[in-house]
Amino acid sequence: MQMHNEIADNAIIEQVLKGDRNAFGTLVERYQSFVFTIALRYVKGREDAEELAQDIFVKAYRSLADFKGTSKFSTWLYTITTTTSISFLRKKKLEVHSLDNEKVFAVADNFDGGMNANVIEQKSRQNMVNAAIRLLSPDDAQVITLFYKGEQTLEEIAQVMGKEPNAVKVQLHRARTRLKEKMQQHFAAEVRDL
């Protein structure tokens, strides 16, 4: 994800608040990949994730007057992303991939079979990592995505997830350990090839 100028974000928000609705499109373009990726951490299908990501941007637009500029716009947007994703799941009663859920292992095994061929075919390290991340719980997947791709500090991630920075640090550590285990468990051959 490219670095964004926060002043530019705030300037765009000011424009939108003054009535330039189209300026909001720049913010959508800028953050759509990230919001969509986080949405995909919560729901399985791309269609659902796209619907969810759309809801998130609509909610952000409606609440834009509440953005005080005390935090980065991205932190504020990711907080909306988290709360909306949880509400969306509750509303749609979609199956959450959770490590506590025994079903996840069956899903993971099926997924592994499907993705293995893809990974071998494409020799793509990224596909493998993304596939492994999808096997994590939404919380674990989110903390990894926010840390590596969201340009967020531990304190900002803590704000987004409503946790203490120390708890986020521990969760990030555990999430990476679990990711390593998933990669070894489901993509052992690919990990050796890398």
Binding site: M1, S33, F36, L40, E50, A53, Q126, N130, M183, L194
Partner: peptide, 13 residues
């Protein structure tokens, strides 16, 4: 692991 995570790309809608 860190480098792999750093190199991953975001999903595109």
């Amino acid at each position: 692991v860190h480098q792999m995570l750093d190199a991953t790309e975001l999903e595109q809608p």
